[in-house]
Amino acid sequence: MKAVLCKEYGPPETLVLEDVASPEPGEGQVRIAVKSAAVNFPDVLIIENKYQFKPPLPFSPGGEVAGIVDKVGPGVTTLKEGDRVIGSCGWGGFAEEIVLEAARCTPFPDEMDFTSASAFLMTYGTSHHALKDRAKIQPGETLLVLGAAGGVGLAAVELGKAMGARVIAAASTEDKVQVAKDHGADDGFVYPTGELDRAQQKALSEKIKELTGGQGADVVYDPVGGDYSEPAIRATNWEGRFLVVGFASGPIPKVPLNLALLKGCQIVGVFWGAFTAREPERNKENLAELMAWFKAGKIKPLVSKTYPLSDAASALNDMAARKVKGKIVLVTE
């Protein structure tokens, strides 16, 4: 089988496509014939040795795949050959085949194609856990989504609407704001890019307050970090919840904790991967709800572009350059 391999840490151009031996499933495992693999920002970080997980070299990037179970290992009773599944792998997904524990595979409905399936679980799982379990968002509350046209951001926009919130989308360009509005955002605005000076940060806070009638956002969903986090916290409502989702802009912000005191707000971490491992039954319930919402047409991944497996470097460069709207996906056929 063919696999995209990271043999040395570096930019996407250092990746190679090689023939490797097909993996064999062991106890409790299945082998998946991969049809598509989503590209996520952690894939950029992991090949540069900047991610919290550091698999031994060589390895394939790619944290989520969709495909067909083509071989079942001993002891597996929940899956059979021919099942269509989404696989949560962390890494290893940029390949024609992958072996995973059966427990890390989620069947998906016939209404969902392979491309949408590979783009579904990580973004919607993260955003659903963030809004439902961590923020406990309520109908009628105001949700501000930073990076609203990205994978997790756009999922948060759709899920916020499905949960009855008023959603404000913030993104780096007008066309990205429009994408978020097309997916349900009630309002939106463009924020400046790069390092923000104090005047730009103050203007960002004032814009959020303006769009929330002076009250501030009840929930802030922040996968961006950097210079955007503190102004967003300053523009939270009383007893608001600021969700720490990621740091796509690069720097991890250091915020004055007196803001939490003055706002009576919560700064809440979101780590969906750990949640799935620690609370598998609750995660299973969440996934069932997400699949039902997909079948009802309430949510649908935006896959803006697909790439062949051989062009993984271009996909990762587009992700790193913030050129992506929604999700991008590698396909093996």
Rank of each mutant, 00 (worst) to 15 (best):
E239F: 14
T106P: 00
G67W: 09
A95D: 03
L79P: 07
E101L: 09
L143G: 00
T126Q: 04
L243R: 04
G184Y: 07
D70K: 15
L57H: 06
D218S: 07
G216A: 03
W91V: 03
G26Q: 13
K207N: 08
F294V: 05
P12A: 15
F271C: 04
I68R: 08
G153P: 06
K327T: 04
P56W: 02
V65W: 03
L211D: 01
P58K: 12
L204K: 02
P301K: 02
T78D: 12
G125A: 07
K176S: 12
Y9N: 14
G194N: 09
A185K: 03
D43F: 11
F294T: 07
S304N: 13
C89N: 12
Y51W: 14
V167H: 08
V99I: 08
V324L: 11
N258S: 11
K263M: 09
A117C: 07
A148K: 02
G153S: 12
N40K: 10
K71P: 00
G214R: 04
P192S: 11
S60W: 09
D311E: 15
K284S: 13
V65N: 06
A321P: 02
L196R: 06
V72S: 11
K295P: 01
A217E: 01
L290P: 00
V72E: 14
E64R: 08
V167Q: 05
Q266D: 13
G240W: 03
L146D: 05
V30W: 07
I68M: 12
K50A: 14
I47W: 02
C105H: 07
E281H: 15
A3P: 05
A171H: 03
N49A: 14
S310Q: 15
L100H: 13
A162Q: 04
K7C: 11
N49L: 06
Y191Q: 09
P42F: 05
G184S: 13
I32H: 12
E18M: 03
R104Y: 08
T123H: 02
D133S: 02
T193E: 09
L290I: 05
I208A: 00
N286M: 05
A320C: 05
E289P: 00
G75N: 15
M319L: 13
K295I: 01
D227T: 01
